[in-house]
Nucleic acid binder design. Structure first.
Lengths: 231, 231
DNA sequence: GAACTAATACTCGATTTCGAGTAATCGAGA
DNA sequence: TCTCGATTACTCGAAATCGAGTATTAGTTC
């Protein structure tokens, strides 16, 4: 899968929109908003115009007319080309068929959990759960509304998917909080002790492992087993 | 939450790494790799060096020495500053406590489902499910391995979380495929008809709604109810 | 009809991001 | 001891990203 010439997902939305009819960039942006697509695809004006320029440069779209309305800036209306339709189809197939590794911010945070005390982590994760729950509620309200208007699900599957992901995040986070609270998370006893040593007695994190028994006691046998830079 | 002066998650990892001990950039990169943090935080050499420079410019880290090994390029060793520790703590709190809206590529794809035929979509989603299942298996193997080495969960929660997300994606996608296959997804009958009209008879998508009864028949009452640019 | 607010329609350039490329050295095998 | 691939350690510039700012007009309210 050679790298896409214009890779911003907004470009994909532009191609999708122009697939319906020719439009000028700002019109595309309002259309995406009225259809709520801006909730699934990040819309930014700066990107919109540069992406349109890049699409034109690569022959995926072409200017079909420029209209001027009084003293307003002149609007360039673009249409999709045959190459553009191919690119869109290829792109959509890739988006649907080939998952691409994406990094969520929470993963980055979880990777550094031991930098905070277990109690602080629990506090923060609880806060996150609350915020996520609020989002779930908002999504569910919207969905109920659309369903009651008989607006077909096919037009909002992306929002359903989003809801599924947020719910999964809540479920995982709840479970993690519980595991930390009850100390059933393997390593959390160690975590508490190590954190205290660093925080209260000013030991450098890197020195903790030089004399594990001193800082952690002997109840943590795996500490002696694992190599310092274990997988 | 004012915008972060250096926003790349890699910068967060750099601060986290230098929190343990002073290092030079390449050393940070290998450490992230041996610990598997590069699986949760995107590591790219170009970004690494520019991010280190930006962190230094903003006083979050400082060069403590430069060593030269024979004819090799000279290595600059950096240490975290007090301001850097604050920034790291603040950042971690934000990552854990305040979910930020992230856009997954699949959402973009789902937003344009009707551009393909239902059959093609099912085919592609099945392909995606297979790829995701392979990832689940890999993750579970790794987890079993780490568990058998008694490597504490606290050091790989981020991978657990990743696994939870992938599983949720599979579950949702499976359900969606089923709904499309059985035509129980509201709108999918409409979808089939609209797609045929566009594909087989060359009607412009934008014209479909001008005479809905003609293209869709009368069994789809909601088509007459909803405004053309419905929410 | 004056004064605002909202909507329209972009522009700009400073920063970020990226990944391919480079160049030296190390180590293992033939 | 020679070779060759892996590892170390970065550099560079093209391209993308962003969001605040600008200028005009339409609509609304008093």
């Amino acid at each position: 899968m050679a790298k896409r010439k214009v890779a911003n997902p907004l470009a994909f939305a532009v191609l999708g929109s122009l697939g319906e009819r020719p439009m000028h960039p700002y019109e595309i942006s309002t259309m995406l908003k009225t259809r709520g697509k801006d909730l699934s695809i990040k819309l930014n004006y700066g990107s919109l115009y540069s992406v349109v320029a890049a699409l034109e440069k690569n022959g995926f779209i072409e200017a079909v007319e420029t209209v001027r309305d009084g003293n307003r800036p002149e609007k360039t209306v673009y249409a999709i080309t045959a190459a553009g339709r191919d690119e869109f189809a290829d792109w959509l197939a890739e988006l649907l068929g080939s998952p691409e590794r994406e990094f969520s911010q929470l993963e980055a945070g979880l990777a550094y959990l031991p930098a905070f005390s277990p109690d602080r982590v629990v506090e923060l994760l609880d806060q996150r759960i609350e915020a996520l729950a609020a989002e779930v509620e908002k999504l569910e309200t919207t969905h109920a509304e659309m369903a009651s208007h008989k607006f077909p699900r096919i037009f909002w599957v992306e929002s359903e998917f989003r809801l599924a992901l947020v719910k999964a995040e809540i479920t995982y986070t709840r479970q993690l909080v519980r595991a930390i609270r009850t100390d059933e998370l393997e390593g959390s006893a160690f975590w508490r002790k190590g954190f205290e040593a660093v925080e209260k007695y000013g030991i450098q994190p890197a020195d903790l492992f030089k004399d594990p028994v001193k800082y952690f006691g002997e109840e943590l046998p795996w500490l002696q087993e694992i190599p310092p830079e274990a997988k």
